[in-house]
Design a protein around this nucleic acid. Structure first.
Lengths: 222, 222
DNA sequence: ACATGATTTGAACAGTGTCAAGATCAAGCC
DNA sequence: GGCTTGATCTTGACACTGTTCAAATCATGT
């Protein structure tokens, strides 16, 4: 887990009153506080001042470590994407050799991550809330994408030196859309109705998700 | 189209200076202005004061017609959902008797609406930005849902007096997830890469969408 | 003609992000 | 060692935001 840990070195506990004028570990703790805020209040409930308040620092202090609020959230999204990619990679490995099993495992992992860390996940895909042109962000998200693409390559028999054909592209987007949409429907409360096979997060993950992923697209056989 | 029209009766053009103390058509024009704002600035760029400004009224005026900002946006979302339901119904009809064709046409219409009116669509599904417990809203969104459900019933041979079985529930959520996710991927710019078969909105709608919906789930045959 | 109630305004309050100046300090250089 | 430089943080300010309250205005029914 890439949650930000404080090293018991020189910094203060968030609440404890700081003796020194300089904070010493502000950048790191701001990221941790920001994540905490979006977990509690949602991505839109985030406030730069609140994050500053939690680490006991003035509202203007963050500006020396991040360009602006978006800059801070970009770092949070970055950490999220690292974990996300790791979760997908682990799932892919669990899938073994069978391409369809790899895709299925990735799908499960995708949704599990999103529903276990909804704040992170929603931030990661909220283009307006972070700088999606950030070089490192592009790299990490690209990396996660490749995990999916590679499974699609295996499923369609496309070697890595050839571009994906139209069928492969369609399959990739279809699979991605399905799991991604499932997450958003869950966030919107659209899967909470027991009469529709839904319920709380447990039901959505344990019962409805397998029911849904039975319909995960298969590659078109030639 | 349920866009709000001004009746050339007693109200003012948004910009023109109003002579009378009372506005006369404030509620309607506020809704229209609000929609305009989210079209230009996105859902998160919406501001109650800006909407009031555009119809030439004080920041406190809207409170007499809507409980708060959320209340105004609820009305906008409501109009959106009416059009959305109408678009889905029309598509369903276009599908004729074949259940799979009905689902496919609905899918196309779903995504087309979302990408043609992204502001509306995103607002409609942003639970935090409007009052999703509003009775009329529940009614209208339920109505749209039923259009999908009925096609699923036809596809699975489930009469309307019986609840959908697990397979039907899974199929419904799978189809919904795929089209819904496709829209969100598009919003996030994930489908803009030509190397991945994407591009601008035209490409996404005309080229990539059919490629993707070729993988729209089929009902499981017993 | 008048009173009642619905609209609208103006001013205020508590929040927000961000900027410019100044205060404080760590660390390198003489 | 002492000094300077640059990084870090605070203070105070500005322009915004949503919402509330009392007062102003007016349409309408009596």
């Amino acid at each position: 887990m890439n949650s930000v840990k404080i090293k018991p070195d020189r910094q203060q506990a968030a609440k404890s009153v700081r003796k020194t004028y300089h904070h010493g570990d502000l950048r790191r703790q701001l990221i941790a506080a920001a994540e905490q805020v979006i977990v509690e209040r949602g991505v839109d409930g985030f406030t730069l001042r609140e994050a500053a308040r939690r680490v006991g620092v003035s509202p203007a202090a963050p500006s020396h470590h991040f360009k602006d609020a978006k800059g801070l959230l970009t770092e949070v999204a970055l950490l999220g994407f690292r974990d996300f990619g790791a979760a997908l990679a682990a799932a892919d490995k669990r899938g073994g050799q069978d391409p369809m099993r790899r895709l299925y495992e990735q799908g499960i992992a995708y949704v599990q991550f999103a529903l276990r860390f909804p704040a992170r996940f929603q931030l990661m895909f909220r283009v307006d809330k972070h700088d999606h042109t950030n070089a490192e962000f592009v790299r990490v998200s690209q990396e996660a994408y490749c995990i999916l693409e590679n499974a699609i390559r295996a499923a369609t028999g496309t070697p890595s030196d050839r571009p994906l054909g139209p069928d492969g592209q369609g399959l990739l987007v279809a699979v991605w859309s399905m799991v991604h949409g499932y997450c958003h429907l869950a966030f919107g409360g659209e899967l909470n109705n027991p009469a529709r096979g839904g319920g709380n997060t447990d039901v959505i993950l344990e019962s409805l998700l397998p029911l849904t992923l039975k319909y995960l697209p298969l590659p078109i056989k030639k």
